[in-house]
Design a protein around this nucleic acid. Structure first.
Lengths: 354, 354
DNA sequence: TATTAGCACTCTCATTCATTGAGTGCTAAT
DNA sequence: ATTAGCACTCAATGAATGAGAGTGCTAATA
């Protein structure tokens, strides 16, 4: 445990009574969104001490940075540091608890990877009444499992790219000449030989040097093929961010101010920022409170996030985002449960055979 | 022209002076969002008549239903009927104008159909500062162009469904037994023979009666195939609605009230309602003002929409949605221009050869 | 020494009230 | 038919006010 030494006096950061008062402030503020005063604490959370004593303790807590006062004659509210203390305590308790999930009945699914993740993000938003964010996997080129060209007209074909997590992307190719149908098998074999499962470097090498020669009298389609394959590589490495339940934030009293609401909603529209926010963590669950977030725009927001996996391999992140005043205990619990289920489901579908 | 007969007196609905006053009110209100009074009109739009005369005319216009008064001592604002008159006049003028579009440089595109439409909806939202809505095509089963099964593991395969507009859907199939790779050609030929381009009835017939027999010793995969094909048929007939620029509405003074804003945003989240709202029209451009919309929730909203096409075949709808106070003239113009471009682009990519 | 009661003080919030200003309808004059 | 003039209406604004909740400090108490 960290110890503060001030003026030569060894001082434990928080004695038990301070801790209880801090918790009372945090939990009450989470519920009511109103600053809470010494008298209220004394009455509501019967502590067995008078409001005056609590007043003194609160002054201490404020000095230590755990509490803040919106203005002189208001009650106190938790600071980021206060929430942090609260969350750390909660997380410790979570760790101790038995985390084996009540396994739910698995539903029948035929859906794309993204659809499944989106569905879970939606459910999570529904049950938590918060905005949720999900990040879809980013893939390495060597995760390409198969490439398939499908003819759709004499001078058009569709290229389907399949990755090891079953993600499918497709691209329409317009060719300047017609292609005979029976060359497709040759092309498909060629592409799968040279690209599927190969490293980015090997793929580039093949595209630059070998492809044109190998194609022989079909060299006219080389450019279109190269362009499309490069595009697909680029797109596979783009991560997709999905949000749901964004309108829930309008129910929070902190966003009765339209401008604040607008800023938050804009932020939730900013996919590239969310993408960074959702960088995977290897912790059990990661909580960033207020200014702990790297972005200035998020100084009044908290993010609870965790990763979802396929057979213990991290493939994406899912999170909850809201004002710093949030019910961390409940949300952490809901998030971890949903994520565990999602991971189970994905693992059972996209098992390592694919 | 329609004529009102009241108490035996033949009365033209709007003489020229009334028309000019009505237009002044509409255009001013569109800009300022403030009720406008007789004196302001007299000064700002120098009509050559006094405010008192305008006052009398406005009283008439109100009686006729073209104007409304928010409260006794406020100015007037246009009613739905007033906007309707304004819009009809505008549309007449639009019809007369030369509508040949200034053809822009066509950019290089490799993207899916949906992506292109979304991109145009986004641009439209950006330039109009309004929420835009786009409806993607709904497809008939007989528009399936190709079905392709792609093996990805011994007991897994992906089914790719391609329609005549290049829409690609894909489904992962989990089989209970392994399938030898060289049966795929047989399966692909079978499916394309029996399903691609066929009517819904013929497809059902094939799935129910022929499939199992034809498969022979691969009958074990029949159920999975049937399930997947039926799902894809269902999904192809689902229309997709996409929205963009929804946050622009928070800039309108009518949505400074958080509850109104929330209702509007929720409505824009309601895909199935938007889907109905965007039912295609065969008009040049369709404007629904306030209560002209079939939905009670939209009584204070207007929708401007039109269809986009591939070679004169309607494939989807794109629209602008906002408060009844909107700049109809400008928005109609922007919408029609963008839509014409979109149609051109789509026609050039998905020409009838596909 | 730690706690508590008591009190003066601060600050927000809701309410009230008067004022202002834009707009109207009506009437009488042009 | 048009306009000037006037009394009237109503929403919006801002100042004044009081209530209420909370604090910090001091002195009394266990």
């Amino acid at each position: 445990m960290r110890v503060l030494i001030i003026h030569g006096v060894v001082k434990m950061p928080l004695d038990d009574r301070k801790k209880r008062i801090l918790f009372a402030v945090v939990t009450d503020y989470i519920m009511t969104a109103e600053p809470i005063g010494s008298r209220t604490i004394a009455k509501k959370y019967n502590m067995g001490i008078s409001s005056a004593t609590i007043r003194n303790e609160m002054a201490d807590l404020e000095e230590m940075g755990y509490l803040e006062q919106p203005h002189t004659s208001a009650g106190r509210i938790p600071s980021d540091k206060g929430y942090r203390f609260y969350v750390d305590t909660i997380l410790q308790n979570f760790m101790k608890e038995d985390l084996s999930p009540p396994p739910r009945v698995r539903e029948e699914v035929i859906a794309e990877f993204d659809e499944i993740v989106k569905k879970y993000a939606k459910i999570l938003a529904d049950i938590t009444h918060h905005a949720t964010v999900a990040k879809m996997p980013k893939l390495n080129p060597d995760k390409i499992k198969r490439l398939q060209l499908i003819p759709v007209a004499s001078n058009k074909m569709i290229m389907v790219v399949i990755t090891d997590t079953g993600i499918v992307k497709n691209y329409l190719l317009n060719l300047c000449q017609s292609v005979d149908r029976n060359v497709f098998e040759f092309l498909n074999n060629l592409l799968n030989d040279k690209i599927a499962g190969k490293s980015e470097k090997a793929i580039f090498n093949f595209l630059e040097k070998e492809l044109k020669d190998t194609l022989g009298d079909m060299a006219f389609m080389a450019d279109e093929l190269i362009k499309t394959i490069l595009l697909s590589l680029k797109q596979l490495q783009e991560t997709d961010v999905y949000t749901d339940g964004t309108l829930h934030i309008l129910d929070f009293p902190e966003y009765k101010d339209l401008n604040k609401a607008k800023n938050f909603l804009s932020l939730l529209d900013n996919k590239s920022l969310l993408n960074e926010v959702l960088e995977p963590v290897d912790d059990f669950v990661d909580v960033k409170i207020g200014r702990e977030n790297r972005f200035e725009e998020m100084r009044e927001l908290s993010v609870i996030k965790t990763t979802y996996k396929i057979n213990d391999r991290v493939v994406g992140t899912i999170g909850i985002i809201g004002p710093t005043r949030m019910d961390y205990r409940r949300l952490i619990s809901e998030l971890t449960l949903m994520t565990r289920e999602l991971s189970n489901l994905l693992s059972s579908i996209y098992n390592d055979e694919i």
